[in-house]
């Protein structure tokens, strides 16, 4: 690895405030004999936007799913906002409260209205009063520009609208970090932009974000840093300029040549 210096400097002078909020240190993940993550080291600073790219099966999704313990990492340490992800159920719940997650397949609850989808978490987890939770939900729907859909059911919305609701739902928990797991992969092409725009607004407002995506345009425009993964390893880390203009690693070059 000759981009060691890149990685180190990137980790230390993170894009945002320079203060680390997520730390993954020597994280391994095994499924039986198969090693999905190999010695992952990554530090994400406050207010930083990190975009993770790589071929499918490279462990990108597994990595961010480890951050909020949807997958359990086998070795290493994961620390979110000073809380270590351990076997302590209180820590797990605390980290999940601080990390909002947006899924590829939206995962809205089809049997609840949009409003109920958004208020469920604040009401159940944060113990917010109903009126306050609904007022906040409406604010968020304004922010993702679909307040008029509040009383509909997810099935009645387009994919793009559903994904924006999913973002609002995650934001309703007032998280410190947002995790995006391929948020536009399940969308029709004409709906990708509305979701990316919402995400960009979010980034502009200073939200810390880890985004797994195939949208290179988004990576180039919004990312503070780009992480390239292949075969469960982090191959190369750098600013978008570094990454797209002068990648160092052969695997990165090959990947970029295949998709660009």
């Amino acid at each position: 690895m000759n981009n060691l210096e890149d990685l180190k400097s990137a980790a230390l002078e993170a894009g945002g405030t320079g203060e680390a909020i997520i730390t993954l240190s020597e994280v391994d993940k095994f499924y039986g004999d198969f090693q999905a993550l190999k010695n992952i080291n990554l530090v994400v600073g406050k207010r930083e936007v990190v975009v993770v790219i790589g071929p499918s099966g490279s462990g990108k999704s597994t990595m961010i799913r480890c951050v909020n313990h949807l997958e359990e990492h086998t070795n290493g340490r994961i620390i979110v906002d000073g809380v270590e992800l351990s076997d302590d159920i209180r820590n797990i719940q605390e980290i999940r409260r601080e990390c909002g997650m947006v899924f590829q397949s939206f995962n809205l609850f089809p049997h609840m209205t949009i409003l109920d989808n958004i208020t469920l978490g604040p009401r159940q987890v944060r113990k917010k009063p109903k009126a306050a939770a609904e007022a906040h939900a409406m604010e968020l729907l304004e922010r993702v520009k679909i307040p008029e859909q509040a009383d509909k059911y997810p099935g009645q919305l387009s994919g793009g609208q559903q994904q924006r609701v999913a973002i609002a739902r995650a934001l309703a928990m007032e998280p410190k970090v947002m995790l995006f797991d391929e948020p536009t992969s399940a969308l029709d092409p004409e709906m990708v932009k509305e979701v990316l725009d919402t995400m960009q607004d979010l980034a502009d407002e200073g939200m810390t974000m880890i985004v797994v995506t195939h949208e290179m345009g988004f990576a180039r425009a919004v990312a503070d840093r780009v992480v390239f993964m292949a075969d469960g390893e982090i191959v190369e880390v750098g600013t978008p300029e570094h990454f797209f203009e002068r990648p160092q690693e052969d695997r990165t070059k090959l990947f970029l040549s295949q998709i660009l």
Partner: peptide, 17 residues
């Protein structure tokens, strides 16, 4: 779909909820 459970987990809901 399992995504439904994951979405709930990611929100920090308890298994019972």
């Amino acid at each position: 779909p399992t995504g439904q459970m994951e979405a709930g987990q990611a929100m920090g809901l308890s298994p019972l909820t």
